[in-house]
């Protein structure tokens, strides 16, 4: 009888632990960060926002030289102009955001209880356009990259501050994003984690893989491989294609939830975008 009671208690504790594991994003984010801190003990926490440059000394030196005349500079200027240009109704992007849209990148994505979905900065920009009678712009295009580059630039150094409100739907979005991150997909049978958790710092052909921690802090990025700027949407689509999967549509629920999860686990790390990558 005593053995039975002990077994039952153990089972109950195990169940409770499992539930707590899956419903405690703060603890999961700590474990996520600790994994990378242990894997790369010589990298300063904030430096994870600089992706592969935090892990490879040669690449870092080249990047530091490039940053004197950064390849995203034209996009940044274009973004500043686009941001200031009034809509046909006379209003601006600034009217749609807190603090006139300056220095707020670190607060996106957000969970919106009214629409019951994760609102990324890219989605918020298009919602702003549509609310003011303008057509939405492409999530993978140059204008979206330029606008988000400017908004990131005004937020540089501010730590990611992603909130998961006390709402089971927000928690579900976080959980869905986490599941997407770890799920293997594509003909190559890779998950996001295969490259960015198991193999950061290793080479995939000529590319040095970035750690998942801080990976979105540098978005949007100029990629030499692309010969131009790319949004977070473009990056997710590109990753899916690289593992030979058919990408989902830009700003699909899965991608927005993935961005929510990845941003949340990088809370506390500074915004470094716009970034430049090989």
């Amino acid at each position: 009888m005593r053995l039975l009671l002990i077994s039952l208690a153990a089972l109950l504790l195990a169940d409770a632990a499992a539930v707590a594991d899956s419903t405690d994003p703060a603890a999961e984010a700590r474990a996520f960060r600790d994994y990378f801190f242990r894997k790369f003990p010589n990298v300063k926490p904030d430096d994870f926002s600089n992706g592969p440059y935090a892990l490879n000394e040669d690449m870092r030196r080249q990047w530091e030289e490039k940053e004197q005349f950064p390849p995203y500079e034209f996009s940044l200027e274009a973004g500043k102009e686009l941001f200031a240009k009034p809509f046909a109704n006379g209003k601006h992007y600034a009217d749609c955001f807190p603090d006139q849209g300056i220095g707020i990148r670190q607060n996106y994505p957000q969970f919106d209880a009214k629409s019951r979905k994760v609102i990324t900065l890219e989605l918020a920009l298009n919602q702003c356009r549509e609310a003011n009678g303008e057509k939405a712009i492409s999530y993978t295009g140059e204008d979206m990259a330029a606008l988000t580059a400017y908004m990131a630039f005004t937020s540089r150094g501010k730590p990611f501050d992603i909130r998961i409100p006390d709402d089971p739907r927000a928690l579900e979005a976080y959980e869905n994003g986490k599941r997407y991150f770890y799920t293997r997909r594509g003909q190559l049978n890779f998950s996001c984690a295969t490259c960015h958790v198991q193999n950061p710092g290793e080479r995939l052909r000529a590319e040095v893989l970035a750690p998942a921690l801080g990976i979105l802090n540098a978005m949007p990025i100029y990629r030499s491989e692309w010969g131009g700027m790319g949004t977070t949407s473009r990056r997710f689509i590109s990753c899916n294609s690289q593992v030979r999967g058919v990408p989902l549509e830009a700003q699909s629920e899965e991608y927005r939830d993935l961005e929510y999860f990845l941003s949340y686990v990088s809370n506390g790390l500074p915004i470094s975008g716009p970034g430049a990558r090989p």
Binding site: R184, R185, S191
Partner: peptide
Amino acid sequence: FQATSEKEAWKNLEIR
């Protein structure tokens, strides 16, 4: 097959 097996298998990769 991949999508079906990954419904549970993804947990094996999770950082805990």
